[in-house]
Design a protein around this nucleic acid. Structure first.
Lengths: 188, 188
DNA sequence: TCTACCATGTAATCTGTTACATGATTGC
DNA sequence: GCAATCATGTAACAGATTACATGGTAGA
């Protein structure tokens, strides 16, 4: 599970608790991933059982239940992480995009619906691009790899957006007959 | 489930059976997705139960078990598909890349391991890029949307590859101290 | 006081992957 | 005869999402 490896990685920087681990995975590192507590907390638990992390502090609330568990990586954890990071990645990139999944079938819808949805998508990615660009200075202090990762996020965002704008243009311009799907022609 | 919607989409072109649906999702449409039979066959079953598709032919093997089930989309299926395709996409792009997940933590590994893994990745994406480029002529007959989708696959591939090559270069060139992670500096 | 955010967790559900089992057909 | 590919399916597992339940702290 790569969420578990990401936790081990983050704990190299400093001791953390679940909430801030989620935050770091989501807000830093190029804003490329989302994680849920449903992955974080069970992940922490299982890492603790394996002896890869250990709770170092538990700030207790008055009259109260356990609160704010601070975790630290153990030597065994560092060793496991080293083994993981030096091995070759198991699988290739996994991209799932509900918009693209629709896009490919827009030939079975009308041009107006298609353009409407593409415009929504353009607006969304434009906003995201601006957010990313505003964040650029934040990556300055963060070492080479983190900075490169953030650049990657920006590059992908740009590629996607440029493609969207160009696609919108072509679809708006091209003749009705080109947009049609032709029974014989389309499927081999 | 978008695999089910993809099945409904493909059945607009012509009647198909499970095996060729998988093939079309994987080999056509820009080579962007993978699917397994564990999604296809249960998907077909549930679409049939919902009345969105119907079996039209069952080529029987001699002395035998059912073989080659041909499915067709029903009117109810077309209606459900139309509703789906005209609605706005539910979620944004989901990218999970085991390589990128490692990359961000390469500061905790040595430069040699990092460069080795990056080189492997470059080799892989170069090959994939060549495969995609060879496939370009195949998309000619396939209508505007399918062609644009294939172009998108190529664009993303190119962006990724260019970034990898540039990243490799920067990492190879930069000083040891820049590669280091600094406890205070890195995590806010 | 109320809102926003910090903080931890679980259960149900959905989605995706791997491995297995089975057998027919096609081309070398 | 053998290998590759066509074809259908299931079971176990892994991974991700949603919704819920709970309560603390800081600031307007």
């Amino acid at each position: 599970m790569s969420v578990k490896n990401a936790i081990l990685g983050l704990l190299h920087y400093k001791d953390m608790h679940g909430y801030s681990i989620k935050e770091h995975i989501e807000k830093h590192f190029g804003n490329m991933w989302t994680v849920n507590y449903g992955q974080i907390y069970p992940g922490l638990r299982s890492l603790e059982e394996e002896g890869f992390i250990a709770m170092v502090e538990l700030a207790p609330s008055e009259d109260g239940g356990p609160h704010k568990k601070l975790y630290s990586i153990t030597e065994a954890g560092r060793a496991a992480f080293q083994e993981w990071i030096e091995s070759s990645p198991e699988r290739q990139m996994f991209l799932r995009d509900p918009f693209l999944m629709r896009f490919i079938f827009f030939g079975f819808s009308d041009r107006e619906s298609a353009l409407r949805i593409i415009d929504e998508q353009i607006a969304f990615y434009r906003e995201q691009m601006e957010r990313r660009q505003k964040n650029v200075p934040r990556w300055e202090g963060y070492g080479v790899y983190v900075r490169l990762m953030a650049e990657m996020g920006l590059n992908l965002n740009k590629t996607y957006l440029d493609w969207l704008v160009n696609a919108r243009d072509e679809i708006a311009r091209c003749g009705e007959e080109e947009l049609e799907w032709r029974r014989g022609a389309v499927i081999s």
